[in-house]
Design a binder for these strands. Structure first.
Lengths: 262, 262
DNA sequence: CACGCTTACTCGTATAGACGAGTGGGCAAG
DNA sequence: CTTGCCCACTCGTCTATACGAGTAAGCGTG
């Protein structure tokens, strides 16, 4: 266990009223920000920092736990604490549901990911009828039961998004929409074929910390929030024909919208 | 120190390989989800839980720290640990920059907040010329120096948003835009008066954990992410005339967009 | 009644020690 | 050389203890 290279980290300020573990976190954060530790690089071990700063191990762990909460670092049991690499982000453009995209057949997710050079995957297919939640029912216009289509999206093996589409039974039952694979262009193409010409979408966006279940399905690291997007699709008659509830790993996405100034 | 009402929380499972502090966190989370503890209500004190579960205090604190990281609870020194109330959210509609809104004079923030019955405030006014960051320069089309307008928005005394607008100097210098108060309708109204008729906006949205500086300015509780929105305004000639960088407390906002299906 | 002090209870910070378990390199046996 | 074991190092979990500091209620004094 070689001592820490001097100059990498400074000393504590015993006169400061800032707690010791915060001072240590501050120093590490600054070192990371300044690039003294690069992405994926291993930080000094807990024992190193105990020696360097002359504090107890719990104090060092407290410091690390702050940085973990900020999403800056992640710990690997038996290996060390590492600067968390920033995964490449997937950009979602606001025209991703434009009719012209639907006409090419493949799903938008696959096409975009292929174009970006990453390996896309869709799993956890579940299609079933179920009772509509209060929220979904309200958005679809007082519907009791719905068809729910659940799927999870992965990029290069990493889960990045979990989505559920809800459709009124009178629209979806007995159609290709109720099949695991709805066919080229996805369910929006099928909806239009069924005579529900799409008019516009409404999207609501929130950000929050994930639930334990979301941490599990999306294999989220500590300190990574989720983007919660709820999209409602309206047909030309003003009827809500689909609600899509999507939870995305926030470190994997940038949403992009284009708005007219009129 | 009365013992915990029995039935409120269960027992630990010593055979489980789930860590004790996680089991405790699970039980508390579930109790909160089930409404056994309501918003703002005080949870059992650390000492209560130490007695109830027969564990050491650090174990209980570990459990609380999980819940804090999830944004579920917050601790108040000397008072206790409380279920974090969910502040009322401000909804940002995608037509909030429509020309018709600019014509009524008052700023969009003030109007909307008044309508929602909350008390709006804008502070931290800073208007100055500065060197453009690499990102801003790229978005504005290779501009070296910019006019930066910084302000912070508060609702009922709570900071909810921190925004900086960047404008090219050749557009903004010497105009009302460079004044602390740009006048009715805000800088977009001034831009149009100056002959830069607005054509459309692009908005990029990310979510992430806040930096320590953002925690301070927005007075964020633990476990509250931020929504980072970067809007670029384009005039009818296709020139980017403004970049607005906004950081919002994620627990205070729902963004809403309307997209055509064409 | 009003003020200030005491006190009990709360969370915040820090120390010291113990054991468990995952990782990876080195070394010895085959 | 390869295999398999051991060991050093790493983080994960947990206990026990100590003191500090903020809060609020109660109580006594003026």
């Amino acid at each position: 266990m070689s001592p820490l290279p001097s100059g990498l980290l400074g000393d504590l300020d015993p006169t400061s009223d800032r707690a010791v573990f915060r001072q240590i976190a501050d120093q590490l954060r600054e070192a990371i920000d300044r690039g003294r530790f690069r992405e994926g690089e291993k930080l000094p071990s807990e024992a190193d920092l105990v020696d360097h700063f002359g504090v107890s191990r719990m104090t060092v762990r407290n410091a690390f736990s702050i940085l973990q909460g900020e999403g800056l670092v992640h710990a690997e049991h038996g290996r060390g604490v590492f600067v968390r690499p920033r995964p490449p982000v997937r950009r979602l453009a606001s025209d991703r549901f434009a009719r012209r995209h639907r006409e090419q057949g493949k799903s938008a997710f696959i096409v975009e990911a292929d174009a970006a050079g990453s390996h896309p995957q869709v799993d956890s297919l579940e299609v079933k009828e179920e009772k509509a939640s209060q929220d979904v029912s309200a958005r679809l216009g007082s519907v009791r039961r719905v068809l729910a289509r659940r799927r999870r999206y992965l990029l290069d093996g990493r889960p990045v998004e979990f989505a559920t589409s809800y459709l009124p039974l009178d629209i979806a039952r007995g159609t290709p929409i109720a099949e695991p694979n709805p066919g080229p262009g996805g369910i929006y193409a099928r909806l239009e074929e069924l005579g529900h010409r799409l008019d516009h979408f409404e999207e609501e966006i929130r950000a929050r910390m994930p639930s334990p279940a979301e941490v599990k399905t999306l294999r989220l690291a500590a300190g990574v929030p989720v983007i919660h997007l709820i999209r409602t699709a309206f047909d030309t008659e003003g009827r809500a024909v689909e609600v899509c509830d999507t939870v995305m790993a926030a470190d994997a996405y940038v949403l992009s919208y284009q708005l007219p100034a009129t």
